[in-house]
């Protein structure tokens, strides 16, 4: 996959464009993707058309493990959001690959959320959009 030209899977994510389509398309195939710079090889997130380190416009989408540890979190209480249970936990995860990724946490694990805990990815659909959430590993399910 590259920045331009190649065919991509359709996705239903709102407010996307050529910079973000690869990411949401990847989730349709249950793949968490990030851009790997074609110039210097650095991974980056969130998506951006140019590498801020070397200036290259060339990149490829690579699959991430979805495993990491919680760097920070919040729990949303108010107001209720369509498609979400309330309260809804969200985690910022330091992935094994060395980049951070934001995602929901499995709602039943809300009370166990803590910085430093290990998580793994789960693929979900919400409001008919292919998404993902994280789940604490080694916790009661």
């Amino acid at each position: 996959m590259s920045a331009t030209g190649e065919q991509q899977t359709k996705h239903n994510a709102p407010c996307s464009n050529q910079d973000f389509d690869f990411f949401y398309s990847g989730l349709e195939g249950q793949q968490l993707l990030a851009q790997k710079c074609g110039g210097c090889g650095k991974l980056r997130n969130p998506p951006s058309p140019m590498c801020g380190d070397c200036g290259s416009l060339d990149w490829a989408a690579v699959k991430l493990s979805g495993k990491g540890s919680i760097y920070s979190y919040m729990v949303h209480y108010h107001p209720p959001l369509p498609g979400f249970d309330t309260p809804h936990p969200v985690v910022l995860v330091e992935l094994e690959e060395g980049i951070r990724m934001l995602g929901g946490l499995r709602p039943e694990q809300r009370d166990a959320v803590a910085i430093g805990k290990a998580v793994d990815i789960e693929y979900i659909r919400r409001n008919d959009v292919a998404l993902f959430q994280f789940a604490l590993t080694g916790e009661a399910r």
Binding site: C15, F23, R126, L131
Partner: peptide
Amino acid sequence: LPPTSEYTGLTYHGLHGVTT
């Protein structure tokens, strides 16, 4: 929201429930 750089990044996070 229009898919401009003003909103694509906010939506990228907002889809997980971070919207306020």
